[in-house]
């Protein structure tokens, strides 16, 4: 019974370079940072490659690093029982990253979650809508600067953000 092995950043970068040229932006001990424009290509390669076989997307997380957003893909292979981490960065002012729904169906809900809470727009996602909060909720609450968002919102228990009544027009009939 062996524990899951981790494919380090250097090894992963080597593999990716062999399959998709000029895709790696940065390599760290545990992860590689991929250029956004090559992301889907890299992910498709990782999924279909026999040696890496990253057919299983464990988790997709977004982190706000103030200057940029980091989208973290935890991938693993159930056949080889190893895992790897790929990251991609998105600009802070107009965050946008390519969607990997075409590669893994499991990314669908997680990308919607990141869009909802962090505001990263995934281009190519079939249904880029908020998932937990309602349409018209001001801002994206998981951002570190949510407290100082434009529009004078001050979240917290004192005052709950009001929704925009225009957003609900047509949603309910009656009255």
């Amino acid at each position: 019974m062996a524990a899951t092995t981790r494919i380090g950043g250097a090894q992963l970068a080597e593999h990716i370079e062999a399959g998709v040229a000029d895709a790696i932006e940065e390599t760290a001990e545990d992860w590689v940072l991929v250029r956004p424009e090559r992301l889907v290509e890299v992910m498709t390669f990782l999924r279909d490659d026999r040696e890496l076989d990253a057919r299983y997307l464990n988790a997709l997380s977004g982190v706000d690093h103030f200057d940029y957003f980091e989208i973290v893909y935890h991938l693993s292979s159930l056949s080889h029982n190893h895992e790897m981490t790929v990251k991609v960065r998105a600009d802070h002012d107009e965050p946008e990253a390519p969607s990997v729904v075409s590669v893994w169906h499991g990314a669908h809900l997680q990308e919607r979650e990141i869009y909802d809470l962090l505001g990263v727009n995934f281009s190519g996602h079939p249904n880029m809508k908020r998932i937990f909060l309602w349409e018209g909720f001001p801002g994206h609450p998981l951002r570190k600067d949510y407290m100082a968002m434009p529009g004078g919102q001050s979240p917290g228990l004192r005052r709950f953000p009001k929704e925009d009544p225009e957003q609900w027009a047509g949603e309910f009939r009656g009255d």
């Binding site: 464990n58 988790a59 997380s61 982190v63 706000d64 169906h105 499991g106 669908h108 809900l109 997680q110």
Partner: peptide
């Protein structure tokens, strides 16, 4: 924690 993200099985089992 700087970031606390949960990979929740219930949500992802709804994907399909």
């Amino acid at each position: 924690p700087y970031r606390f993200h949960v990979r929740s099985p219930s949500l992802l089992n709804l994907s399909a």
